[in-house]
């Protein structure tokens, strides 16, 4: 076998293991350690834990909704630093939004997350309900 072909085969074989290391490995680990316990592995949620799968992208349709994703206590008070929290939020949005994200995705930056998490929500359910109602009336008016 030619050395070039052997090298190409070796590279193809090792790519999947290389891909699981690096930042993608870290962001999945951060989700597992900080979110998955309640939100479940695929973001389905359970009981009183809201379903993110197929829904979470809706919140990006308004500024209040975007802020909600960072100010919700599970995000704002998590042990993750701003950079890692932004990475987890962006991963959740790209992984779980499905058809619920109908506008171009503007990723969270560490700076934005650091600023918004200074004001964690106190009345989470009320705020979420208001955000969703406002979004619903916006879509009806369009």
């Amino acid at each position: 076998m030619k050395p070039g072909l052997l090298l190409a085969l070796l590279l193809c074989w090792s790519l999947p293991s290389l891909a699981t290391t690096g930042n993608s490995g870290r962001v999945v680990f951060d989700y597992q350690m900080n979110c998955q316990g309640c939100h479940t592995p695929d973001g389905s949620g359970a009981g009183s834990v809201p379903r993110m799968k197929g829904h979470v992208g809706i919140f990006l349709q308004s500024q209040e909704g975007r802020e909600y994703l960072v100010r919700v206590p599970g995000s704002a008070t998590s042990a993750l630093n701003d950079e890692r929290l932004a990475a987890v939020l962006n991963w959740i949005l790209t992984e779980f939004s499905g058809d619920s994200m109908n506008s171009p995705f503007k990723a969270f930056s560490a700076e934005e997350v650091g600023r918004l998490r200074q004001s964690p929500l106190k009345e989470v359910e009320q705020y979420r309900l208001k955000v969703l109602r406002d979004l619903s009336s916006m879509s009806m008016n369009e």
Binding site: G37, T40, G47
Partner: peptide, 9 residues
Amino acid sequence: MSPVTWIGT
């Protein structure tokens, strides 16, 4: 089995 769980290493 509870789907909500606590996770560690």
